[in-house]
Design a protein around this nucleic acid. Structure first.
Length: 585
RNA sequence: UGGGGAGUGGUGAAAUGGAAUCACACGUGGCUCUGACCCACGGUUUCCAGGUUCGAGCCCUGGCUCCCCAGCCA
């Protein structure tokens, strides 16, 4: 793993352990597994990994690392109809990108098919499993309900010989899909529905992405998963809450087929993030219906999407660390994720200047044709890093349109008619004249004068800050660029909880991305390499898009905006203006 | 109505019978050539009702609310 500063920034230094680490610590101390710790991350290769998986990955790999154990990466590939090598590759890439290493412990449940089959045979021989020949529908009806016990299948008491024979013929391809299944003989009246003779194997005449047509008999998750854990000598099998009921099967199978010390399953609450969806099915739907540009759309909560968006592995790990882990269903706010990303980027993204919505400024007392190259540090004082570049100042520059106001509020620190502002790393200018389009009235240019002595000068002994320092670019030197501003994908915190007659797609945010074309960047950014991250001062953190950006024609994605206390204040003022007066009655 | 889980400020988590703590968010103030970062201060008294105890978020009893389980998905 890594030892970047971000990793050590655990809340409260983490003296206290979460319930999972507590269990692992207990087992380590008691020598339950001879001090050994082995976890595993077991994705099914039928979709892309998302931030919810990242939580699980950080947990499993994190715990293994902290206790000197190892974490296996295992593809839980037991369903030939949905799985694909492309997903395996994306999963491997994503886990690696997150910064984790499984050494030579990459496994596939599909490699265990033969051993699993033998274990099933053993169960049959022990009279603990039987071939059921009921139809799918009959099986459902025999299962009963949560209130009524199920009924035994008429095939439940077949002889061992007959079961063995049937099971072998199921494997050899003699029967069509659905003709028979193998079930554990447990208890059709069990109060835990999962224990009513769970299905272990089903016939599927389907090509498997790894095993081809060598099998037409496939194990169910409930059978393959615990036994794969046992085969790999996993000690702590960590999964999400919805598998709590499945633990009974897990224990039943492993107890019946493996000696102590055997793996045990523990469950934690999966991650829910506000303003996004986390189910593979819904994510797939967004992709297939072209509601997003793909699995790596920067708005997607997928690892691929976050990577393209510019999130860092360190930031994501910091997030996972901060949210902790528990058994209570929870819903985490986006701010927690964004702050972790910012926290990480703050220390590693050099500051540069970009004007997203340009407004022309002519410095009338600046000689025509003159260019002044000004030393500009990449880092603010408090970061304590070295490095700078020279920025050209000329007669015509562009500033942010939002940094000028004709009718500013009392606490305005930026430019206004007759007012002053600091061009960051350069001089102070004063606005003498506002030029506007005669037809539309729109402000098209500001004519300013500058204080030639102001570059490099200290604030001048002023106690209280009276003007802002704003970003700017020289008109003649600026690099045009496209900048994409990403926002939350949905307009409601919990899109999955759609009301009657609606779906999660009804709450899709219509303005979740804004493409800005006429942006102007400082000259050095022309050759930003794809994947390179910067802070555009006073805007946020940005990354040169890995797919669309190229030298000379940069395209930047906003990773995350900077906090903006002023914008917040303005918003609140607007709100109180709206609600205030109407409340008088 | 059965079984399995869970309830601590707005959000996520600590506190393992001994002064409710941390992070994010929010508010106020300070610092600042980023209205960023950073610093300081502020708001909960632990789902409810009883009980045990010198002492309860932790233990007991009874409620309430929410989540999961009736796929040949995982």
């Amino acid at each position: 793993m890594s030892d970047t500063p971000s990793d050590t920034r655990k809340p409260g230094g983490r003296e206290s352990l979460d319930f999972l680490r507590e269990i692992v610590k207990r087992d380590t101390l008691s020598g339950a597994y001879g001090g050994r710790v082995a976890t595993r991350f077991p994705p099914e290769p039928n979709g892309y990994l998302h931030i919810g998986h990242a939580k699980s990955i950080c947990l499993n790999f994190g715990i293994a690392a902290e206790f000197g154990g190892c974490c296996h990466l295992r593809m839980d590939d037991t369903n030939p109809e949905t799985e694909d090598m492309a997903y395996v590759e994306s999963i491997i890439g994503d886990v690696r990108w997150l910064g984790f290493d499984w050494g030579n412990k990459l496994f596939f449940a599909s490699d265990y098919y033969e051993r699993l089959y033998e274990l099933a045979v053993r169960l049959i021989k022990d009279g603990k499993a039987y071939v059921d020949s009921l139809s799918e529908d009959e099986i459902r009806r025999h299962r009963g309900t949560i209130m009524e016990a199920g009924r035994d299948s008429p095939w439940r008491d077949r002889s061992v010989e007959e079961n063995l024979d049937l099971f072998a013929r199921m494997r050899s391809g003699e029967f069509p899909d659905g003709a028979h299944v193998l079930r554990a003989k447990i208890d059709m009246a069990a109060r835990n529905m999962k224990m009513r003779d769970p299905l272990l194997y089903r016939i599927r005449h389907a090509s498997h992405y790894r095993r081809g047509d060598s099998w037409c008999l496939y194990p169910m998750y409930d059978f393959a998963h615990p036994l794969s854990d046992a085969i790999e000598n996993i000690t702590h099998s960590i999964c999400t809450l919805e598998f709590e009921n499945n633990r009974a099967i897990y224990d039943w199978l492993v107890d019946n087929l493996f000696p102590e010390p055997r793996p045990r399953q523990y469950e934690f609450a999966r991650l829910n993030l506000d303003y996004t969806v986390m189910s593979k099915r819904k994510l797939l739907q967004l992709v297939e219906e072209s509601l997003v540009s793909g699995w790596d759309d920067p708005r997607m909560p997928t690892i691929a999407g976050m990577r393209r968006r510019g999130y860092t592995p360190e930031g994501i790990r910091l997030f996972a660390d901060r949210i902790g882990v528990d058994k209570a269903n929870s819903r985490v706010s986006m701010e927690l994720l964004e702050d972790a990303i910012r926290d990480d980027l703050n220390a590693r993204a050099p500051r540069v200047m970009a004007v997203l919505r340009p407004l022309k400024v002519t410095i009338t007392d600046f000689p025509e044709g003159k260019v002044e190259w000004l030393e500009s540090p990449y880092w603010p004082r408090d970061i304590g890093k070295e490095g700078s570049r020279k920025l050209p100042l000329a007669r015509e520059v562009f500033i942010e349109r939002t940094d000028f106001s004709e009718d500013p509020p009392a606490d305005w620190l930026r430019l206004a008619p007759g007012g002053e502002v600091r061009l960051m790393n350069a001089c102070i200018i004063r606005c003498e004249e506002v030029v506007r389009d005669t037809a539309t009235g729109e402000v098209t240019e500001l004519r300013c004068v500058h204080d030639p002595d102001s570059p490099g000068k200290p604030p001048g002994g002023k106690k209280k800050k009276k003007t802002a320092a704003i970003q700017w670019v020289s008109a003649a030197h600026a690099v045009p660029a496209e900048v994409r501003l990403y926002d939350r994908l949905f307009t409601v915190p919990d899109p999955e909880a759609a009301e009657e007659g609606k779906t999660f797609k009804d709450s899709l945010n219509p303005v979740s991305v804004e493409f800005l074309r006429g942006c102007l960047l400082e000259p050095g950014l022309a050759n930003a390499s794809p994947g390179e991250r910067f802070q555009f001062v006073r805007h946020g953190f940005f990354i040169a898009d890995a797919v669309d950006s190229r030298p000379g024609i940069p395209v930047f994605n906003r990773i995350v905006g900077l906090r903006d206390a002023y914008a917040r204040r303005i918003r609140q003022r607007a709100d109180s203006l709206l609600t205030g007066p109407s409340r008088i009655g």
